[in-house]
Design a protein around this nucleic acid. Structure first.
Lengths: 190, 190
DNA sequence: ACTAAATGTTGACGTTGTTTACATACGCTC
DNA sequence: GAGCGTATGTAAACAACGTCAACATTTAGT
């Protein structure tokens, strides 16, 4: 005997969406499918999200949160510092491998617009842990603003590219090689 | 007075597809839409492609060809060598910016499976110009196979990540800064 | 000229995102 | 507690999509 009102449909949908993203990609994920999997009618979703994009954005936000947490954990496990920086990089790539669809979604253009802490003029404080860790670690490596921006940019681009090349099957790396590629990163004068 | 037979529908569809990818993304691109835009019925497409995936794969292959050509041009324009390597990197990022949907498609997992020249054991000869340029330039920087693989990996990851971060709006860079980030790349001992 | 293959069309099926109109349940005030 | 407004869920419908099956027309080879 199901109740007419679900209780907390919004979170249930998000949880179901995350579960579905384990084997489907984000654009194979259907609104109706998500609704079906929590046992609710297709259009009930629209009481909690204006459209599919908003639903995906919510999933993306959750993905970003999980990524940040994984990175923070990894950095603390090695005692922070510059080893911690490398650890956040490896954690970034491993998170992508472990959650391909969620990772992709978190950084897709339709996702939440503000993973970025790298607007040209320094920008505002990043709103998520992943970006915050990147900014702080980069600042530790150089007090000069332009230099630390370059460091952040290169570090982010490196792990982001590596992650996606692996996800797309363009490149095949074992765990050790991931560490080696990521930690071989070194700030360069320009 | 249109003929019943089109003449060369396959190439016409590909051309139309490329044109459509200028403002739609690859999964917003519809088979029916492509067919419509060359003035042919929806199902005519199936005489030339087994399914939508095959159509997109053909577009991806063309994208990869264009990317390789742009990189080769760029490298030759600066006289090859290690400046040429940097030029291919910048060209990679600029191509992505100029053709976002096509670039994404070219490297999506469903695309042609072999942009990669970076299988673990050296792998086979790459089948496209982009990968070939990467391999050759990396080999010029180190005769040691493992080292040149690392160089290629890092270089590719850097430009790939940078390109996608820019496309996804996670990061905002002007032209000069792209050059600076890309050419600041330096091989590191690990 | 006849036939077989290649190519294009029509119509249909099941799926999707979304809208509109309607139904039910919760929480508030009296 | 009765009544009522709002939050929440449902049902039916629409257009668009990918794809299949059956049919039509054109081309090419004997």
């Amino acid at each position: 005997m199901r109740k007419y009102h679900h209780g907390d449909l919004r979170s249930a949908l998000i949880e179901a969406g995350l579960k579905l993203l384990a084997d489907r990609s984000a654009d194979e994920l259907g609104l109706r499918e998500a609704a079906r999997s929590v046992g609710v009618s297709a259009t009930a979703v629209y009481r909690h999200f204006p459209d599919k994009g908003a639903f995906l954005a919510a999933l993306a936000a959750e993905g970003l949160r999980q990524l940040g947490a994984a990175q923070r954990d990894a950095a603390e496990r090695v005692g922070g510092g510059s080893a911690g920086f490398a650890a956040t990089g490896a954690a970034y790539v491993r998170f992508a491998i472990a959650n391909p669809a969620l990772f992709r979604l978190a950084f897709s253009a339709s996702g939440v617009q503000d993973a970025s802490c790298l607007a040209p003029g320094g920008g505002e404080a990043p709103s998520n842990d992943a970006a915050l860790l990147l900014r702080d670690h980069s600042r530790n490596l150089s007090t000069d603003q332009a230099a630390s921006r370059q460091i952040a940019l290169r570090a982010w681009a490196l792990v982001h590219g590596l992650a996606l090349l692996i996800l797309d099957g363009q490149v095949v790396l074992d765990d050790a090689e991931i560490d080696s590629v990521v930690s071989g990163f070194a700030p360069v004068k320009n």
